[in-house]
Amino acid sequence: MSATGTRAIIWANGEDQFCLAKVGLILDLEEKCKAPFAVIMARLESGTWGLNDVRETIRLGLIGGGMAPDRAMTAVKNHVDENRQGLAHSVLVAYEVVKVVMFGVPDDPVGKSSDDAGKGEPAEAPETGSTTTTDASDAPK
């Protein structure tokens, strides 16, 4: 997992930083969804999610990524609650946010073991996160 557990995701609101990799945010998510974190993740993955699984994951992920709580709520209202294109894209965003908590940020040097260090790869500057684009993006591809 990256040092901050943060992932940039391009979605209907544009590119935003998401982070749930903080104990307090995970506990808040579990309370709002009335389920353990692993159950929320399984519901998002299997298609058995409830609306709070989607909207609260996105809202709390935005807050953890540095967005003010009122702006995060406005983004959720505009791009989840009132999304005329359906919830499928928001489900994908929510699932990406919880995956970072469980599996870390892909290709993140913080997650590599010391055994992997220096095996013929040039040294690179460490990254603090990654960017994911979902089909929900209004951004040009």
Rank of each mutant, 00 (worst) to 15 (best):
residue 124 E to I: 02
residue 8 A to V: 08
residue 71 R to E: 10
residue 66 G to D: 04
residue 100 V to P: 03
residue 123 A to I: 04
residue 37 F to Y: 06
residue 55 R to P: 00
residue 12 A to M: 04
residue 50 G to N: 13
residue 115 D to G: 01
residue 126 P to M: 03
residue 135 D to L: 10
residue 1 M to Y: 09
residue 33 C to N: 10
residue 70 D to V: 13
residue 133 T to G: 06
residue 67 M to I: 14
residue 134 T to P: 09
residue 138 D to A: 13
residue 126 P to I: 04
residue 128 T to W: 04
residue 45 E to Q: 13
residue 7 R to M: 14
residue 129 G to A: 03
residue 27 L to D: 07
residue 141 K to A: 06
residue 53 D to T: 09
residue 136 A to N: 15
residue 96 E to W: 14
residue 136 A to Y: 10
residue 86 G to Y: 12
residue 29 L to N: 08
residue 119 K to M: 11
residue 57 T to D: 08
residue 114 S to E: 14
residue 27 L to F: 08
residue 26 I to E: 02
residue 93 V to S: 05
residue 94 A to Q: 11
residue 91 V to S: 03
residue 75 A to K: 08
residue 15 E to K: 12
residue 75 A to L: 02
residue 130 S to D: 10
residue 67 M to L: 12
residue 85 Q to I: 00
residue 67 M to A: 10
residue 137 S to R: 01
residue 22 K to R: 13
residue 132 T to D: 07
residue 39 V to L: 05
residue 118 G to N: 10
residue 82 E to I: 00
residue 14 G to T: 11
residue 121 E to G: 10
residue 69 P to K: 08
residue 63 I to P: 04
residue 4 T to C: 02
residue 35 A to N: 11
residue 2 S to F: 01
residue 60 L to D: 05
residue 32 K to E: 14
residue 136 A to W: 12
residue 136 A to V: 00
residue 40 I to C: 08
residue 64 G to I: 08
residue 109 P to T: 08
residue 87 L to H: 05
residue 95 Y to E: 11
residue 135 D to W: 04
residue 116 D to C: 03
residue 133 T to H: 11
residue 53 D to Q: 13
residue 49 W to Q: 15
residue 15 E to N: 05
residue 11 W to Y: 09
